[in-house]
Amino acid sequence: MTAASQDLAAVWLTLKLASVVTVLLLIIGTPIAWWLARTRSRLKGAVGAIVALPLVLPPTVIGFYLLITMGPHGPIGRLTEALGLGVLPFTFSGLVVASVFYSLPFVVQPIQNAFEAIGERPLEVASTLRAGPWDSFWSVAVPLARPGFLSGAILGFAHTVGEFGVVLMIGGNIPEKTRVVSVQIYDHVEALAYTQAHWLAGGMVLFSFAVLLTLYTLNPGRRARP
């Protein structure tokens, strides 16, 4: 493979990873956000803190623990092996699992904020009109929280594209499987191939700017809070 086609392969892999992760995060993150927004449980603080952990922890810490727990001697590794899935490090699925974890707060928090902003009133009105909880969730809460979903999806996608430390720790730098753009840039810089690094790194800057511009243009009223 030529250098340019390796770069393209890395770009394609990164977009694929970010798309899969964003879809999974909307599926997983929405019920968590709903629960966090409406619960009066004493567990709310603990769950919220766990969701927010990746915001605070250095990616190397997350990557290191994922490498150990998903490895053949770790609890997750034993489970995936028992299920016949093999071990996750060095695979695309492994990157997906890791990315879902570290991008979780970027999706859950905007959706949770949007749900909280709706308040009780619209849902009470819906139930006086005999809408069941499922019906009022889909036809009242979700449409009203649309900006939150949009922010969450964009931020989750962008953060997955930008992640580096975790992928570096568990990826193994395999072309077309785990070598994403950020790792490729790091390689170029380490190998002193600055011209190639500039192409990709400059592209990342433009991409990130375009994403945030879209976000703030579509959501002018309130700032996205990651």
């Binding site: 570096l168 720790m169 193994g172 730098n173 395999i174």
Partner: peptide
């Protein structure tokens, strides 16, 4: 599988 450096390779 490639480690970014020899330290990471050892870790793997």
């Amino acid at each position: 599988v490639q480690g970014e450096n020899i330290t990471q390779t050892f870790q793997f």
